[in-house]
């Protein structure tokens, strides 16, 4: 089991390293064009203490689980 986990972690690290090499693609939204995306209203998870609680409220009463991406909003971004 531990060996299997180690292989998966190694694969994940290798994947990230490989993708890093593609980091010089020209961004189509320039850094100076991101003021709207940087607005606090666009925060993917503005209140982690609250979203973690609401995830729990729903998960405790539903069969489905997972893929919440960090508390309700799901968007690992901004």
């Amino acid at each position: 089991m531990i060996k299997g986990i180690a292989v998966k972690v190694a694969a994940a690290v290798a994947l990230v390293s490989g993708l890093s090499a593609c980091g010089n693609i020209e961004p189509w939204v320039k850094p100076y064009e991101r003021q709207q995306l940087a607005d606090p209203l666009m925060a993917a998870n503005p209140n982690p203490v609250s979203s973690a609680y609401m995830d729990h409220v729903f998960e405790a009463r539903e069969g489905a689980r997972g893929a919440l991406g960090g508390g309700g909003g799901g968007c690992g971004c901004n």
């Binding site: 982690p48 979203s51 973690a52 729990h56 998960e59 405790a60 991406g69 960090g70 508390g71």
Partner: peptide, 30 residues
């Protein structure tokens, strides 16, 4: 689901902090 709660909480605790890989979020208390 209560059984799962600790796993959810662990993920919720960790993931908001990785929301932007290049910058760590500001100091905060709730």
């Amino acid at each position: 689901a209560r059984i799962l709660w600790s796993m959810v909480a662990g993920a919720a605790l960790a993931l908001p902090l990785v929301s932007s890989a290049g910058v760590l979020p500001d100091d905060r208390a709730d």
